[in-house]
Simulated assay, not measured.
Amino acid sequence: MRVATKAYVEHVAVWVKDIHWHIRFFHDVLGMTLREVDGTPEQPRQYWTLGGMQFIANPAFEGPEGRLAHLGVMCEDLEAALAAARRFGITEMPQGRNWLRLPDGLAIELVQARPAACVAQALAINPRAEV
């Protein structure tokens, strides 16, 4: 079977009760800085880091802290990935045709890479290679 596209996990989205704590932790401990914010930096509803984290503020969240909201997967060919997903009987979520709910409940957001070649560049990095 031919592989439809190459892809990598672009971000991981988690619900958090205290978004400011998470922002400080990932910045101070791991050096992850602001990529994008929904709301203001003082009152963010969502906060994305360079480094692949997305925090979704939900002070009333009653699940375990940091429950996975969805995986953001960067695709070199979004249309090919969506066509391949349809063959698995996957259906779209209300957020749009690039949002898929897997049978075990996991939500995946497929994102078109621009330029598409950046997927190959990201996959070429071996973070465990000896220097």
Rank of each mutant, 00 (worst) to 15 (best):
M1I: 07
M1V: 10
R2N: 10
A4Y: 11
A4L: 06
A4V: 08
T5F: 06
T5S: 14
K6H: 14
Y8E: 01
V9F: 03
E10P: 00
E10W: 00
E10V: 00
H11S: 11
H11E: 04
H11K: 04
V12D: 05
V12K: 07
W15G: 02
V16S: 09
K17I: 02
K17M: 00
K17T: 11
D18T: 04
D18V: 05
I19L: 06
I19F: 09
I19D: 10
H20C: 02
H20F: 04
W21R: 15
W21Y: 13
W21N: 10
H22R: 10
I23W: 08
R24Q: 12
H27A: 09
H27E: 13
D28I: 09
L30P: 03
L30C: 14
G31N: 06
G31H: 10
L34F: 01
L34Q: 15
R35F: 00
V37E: 06
D38A: 05
D38V: 13
D38R: 10
E42D: 15
E42L: 07
E42H: 03
E42F: 03
E42K: 13
P44S: 05
R45V: 08
Q46Y: 01
T49F: 09
T49Q: 06
G51Q: 09
G52L: 09
M53C: 12
M53F: 15
F55V: 06
F55R: 01
I56P: 02
I56V: 13
I56C: 09
A57E: 13
N58M: 12
N58E: 10
A60N: 14
F61L: 02
F61Y: 15
F61H: 15
F61T: 00
F61Q: 08
F61C: 06
E62G: 07
G63N: 12
P64W: 08
E65C: 04
E65W: 07
E65T: 03
G66M: 08
G66L: 06
R67K: 10
L68P: 04
A69L: 02
M74S: 12
E76T: 02
D77T: 07
A80R: 06
A80G: 11
A81W: 01
A81I: 12
L82V: 12
L82D: 01
A85W: 05
R87E: 15
F88C: 13
F88R: 14
G89W: 08
T91Q: 13
E92T: 11
M93H: 11
M93Y: 08
P94F: 01
P94E: 09
P94V: 03
Q95K: 09
G96R: 06
G96W: 05
R97M: 05
N98W: 01
N98D: 14
N98F: 01
W99D: 04
R101I: 07
D104L: 04
D104H: 11
D104W: 08
D104A: 12
G105W: 05
L106M: 13
L106A: 13
A107S: 13
I108Q: 01
V111E: 05
Q112G: 08
Q112T: 03
R114W: 02
R114V: 03
A117Y: 00
A117N: 01
V119A: 04
V119T: 05
Q121P: 00
A124M: 04
A124S: 15
I125K: 09
N126E: 13
N126C: 08
R128E: 12
R128F: 15
A129L: 07
A129T: 03
E130Y: 07
V131T: 12
